[in-house]
Nucleic acid binder design. Structure first.
Lengths: 212, 212
DNA sequence: CAACGTCTTGACCATTTGGTCAGGATAGCA
DNA sequence: TGCTATCCTGACCAAATGGTCAAGACGTTG
């Protein structure tokens, strides 16, 4: 096995590692500073690399931003896995809320970068929103409608249900500092996220006529 | 009555008008570009003034941002008016949701500026969050708890209830482009906001054991 | 081991941008 | 009418920042 084919050694490994390091640093900086506020110098410093080296891997700041965003979009499409006709509604929704809440706790930077992108009109992901994401949501909305038609769920607009679920879960990542401040804490702990998940689940499930 | 005391004429009126125009332009630009992405040149252009004139009224970009933010914080503290012990829970909550949703529809820029500020760690409003806002929310949380104690409401963590309500209503201002894209529309119309308000109200009220 | 392609980096550049300044215009007032 | 305070603005500047470049280091391969 040549080094070129073994990802653990050689230049291929160097590239892989550096790209990963840069993406991670970039996600953090874009999350806390926004696209315009982030500087390539800061990202490079956080990645522990000289700036020109960063530009060697990603020619422009915009290209780096796109790469970070692409990573995040991939995450997005997964979480809905539990929503399928065969599943028990209460179970599926509980799982979905839990998945989204976990994502907010574990990948807050990703959520923030995405939120920031949306806030500014989604210049870089408009295509995704109206394309892959719309198709996915339309699809899952049909599942909800099927549940309603089967009398398993109180009538509700499925799309708006999703908007509420996204908002209620992502708010704990995006606006964590507000929530922490109002709760009188310095930072949110896993206990807060548990409580949040329970509250959202209880509200939504009972709101849909299901047993929490 | 001297001109100086009559706000409709004279230099005082000029100042008032220019300040208002600048604040409005700034709110729009800060909302769509963020603090770092906004340029004083663009704000000035939008306000129809030369840049140095803008700096005449607001010495620095940061000062202008603070002024915009202060306007927004004032709005924030009002919406909760309907939450009081004497009120009927279902009625009060419906009103609150409606007020927040209206605010999302009518003042989307304000919501976005605030969201942007929170996303970036609230450097400029941390004091407000842990101060006036925390006190207000703690106060309103006691009202919710009183309702629960009186058996008018299913048990729920009052703070997290508020977080969910904020998220569910503000998402229609902050992330409008995502919602529009998923709904297959160019822009959200008042019909969408109506439907959103109904959905949130129905979910939350039933979720709290109330009649929607 | 030599030659080649990939990676690394200090120094540098052009542009953007927040902010300044000096002097002119204008409103209010004696 | 003339004096003062406020308002307006074209021209300008220093700092920050995205991006470049040329030269050197390093791993890989024939």
């Amino acid at each position: 096995m040549s080094a070129a084919k073994n990802p653990k050694n050689g230049k291929e490994a160097i590239r892989r590692e550096n790209v990963a390091t840069i993406l991670q640093a970039a996600e953090a900086v874009f999350a806390t500073k926004g696209f315009s506020g982030a500087t390539t110098a800061e990202i490079a410093a956080r990645a522990g690399l000289p700036k020109p080296n960063l530009h060697y891997y990603f020619r422009t700041k915009a290209a780096l931003y796109r790469a970070v965003l692409d990573d995040i979009l991939a995450l997005w499409l997964d979480a809905t896995a539990s929503i399928m006709v065969e599943a028990e509604p209460a179970d599926a929704l509980r799982r979905y809320i839990d998945a989204k809440m976990t994502y907010s706790r574990k990948r807050p930077f990703a959520s923030k970068v995405f939120a920031n992108e949306l806030l500014h009109g989604a210049p870089a992901v408009k295509g995704f929103l109206g394309g892959a994401m719309k198709r996915l949501v339309d699809d899952k909305a049909k599942v909800i409608e099927a549940w309603i038609a089967a009398g398993k769920l109180a009538p509700v607009d499925p799309h708006h249900l999703f908007f509420v679920l996204w908002a209620a879960t992502q708010t704990y990542a995006d606006f964590d500092c507000q929530i922490a401040a109002v709760l009188g804490k310095k930072k949110l702990g896993s206990g807060d996220f548990d409580r949040a998940g329970e509250t959202v689940s209880a509200l939504v499930l009972r709101g849909l006529g299901l047993k929490p």
